[in-house]
Nucleic acid binder design. Structure first.
Lengths: 157, 157
DNA sequence: CGGATTTAGTTTCCGCGTAAACTAAATTTT
DNA sequence: AAAATTTAGTTTACGCGGAAACTAAATCCG
């Protein structure tokens, strides 16, 4: 009833061949899933994963230069400028140019920013857990550890 | 010499706290790395990972509907339209509207498209390997398997 | 010192991917 | 069979992220 080679039948299984073993492809899928989970759990506060991460790092390193953060989090300078502007505009972050180097920009959390991180810390950290849907705790730990190795997070850049 | 709490010294180690264990963050880093590797190894042919993947799947399933591919590869319809247009424009793919359903669009590789996939198959598959930089073969396999589980690639959607 | 280079960040412009609204065709309902 | 609904794909408008060119300040060097 249906053509042998051509995919005329809608319900025919779709062959994916070797891409199902492609790290690049799998990582892209994982990215999508992680993103979905993020919004399911803390979409309400209106920040995106990247923004939250920046906020987090500023909280841990008040006064860090904008460029250092960009470098650490693998965000490009051009993007960092806009991202920072957004956070400032929301009143979560302040920029300060030190007298010692008037090119530089140092970042600090505002009161509100501090409160924000404090308020969402649990949610943000649990976001690591809720997205482990299909994984046991051990598997999740293993995945985390392998990704760290793969990305060279330990060895720094 | 430097302020205790503030990050006045440039070379001070940057604290990242719990995000180094955040799957979402790690996956983003992995994504960036995979992307870099892709372009290092086959950036010359001018296709991006997503485009190559689509080409690949069409090759394995000639005549598949555009929407089915989008669904399988988690590409949104709106994007799929543009992506397909690009591939058609490069002469790698042809679109065909079957008489049985004049809304649908079926996709096929052209001669050139077939040749293209054929020519880059090795490169494309080895792309899985070259990006395993920091990982042993066993670790890479393990990572692949965990990502499959995490993304639910086995269980389908 | 004063010109050349480097460094920090910004601005402009562009492409990718998405959401929402839309067009057209098939299907369901009555 | 006509109206309502669903389905397939496209169009439009927008935001995110990046590359390249730029501005301004600091450093290097003769």
């Amino acid at each position: 009833m249906r053509d042998a080679m051509e995919q005329e039948a809608e319900d025919a299984p779709i062959r994916m061949g070797a891409i199902t073993d492609s790290l690049g492809f799998l990582i892209r899928l994982a990215q999508i899933k992680a993103f979905d989970n993020f919004f399911e759990n803390l979409g309400d506060h209106g920040l995106k994963p990247g923004e939250f991460t920046v906020l987090w790092v500023i909280g841990l390193n008040p006064g860090l230069r904008q460029g250092s953060i960009a470098n650490t989090l693998r965000i490009k300078p051009a993007h960092m400028t806009k991202l920072t502007a957004r956070l400032v505009q929301r009143g979560l972050v302040t920029r300060k140019t030190p007298k010692s180097d008037r090119r530089a920009v140092r970042l600090y959390l505002t009161e509100e920013g501090s409160g924000f991180v404090e308020a969402h810390r649990e949610n943000f950290l649990s976001f690591n857990f809720t997205e482990k849907d299909n994984l046991s705790q051990e598997e999740a730990d293993q995945l985390t550890s392998l990704l760290k190795k793969f990305t060279g997070l330990n060895a720094c850049h």
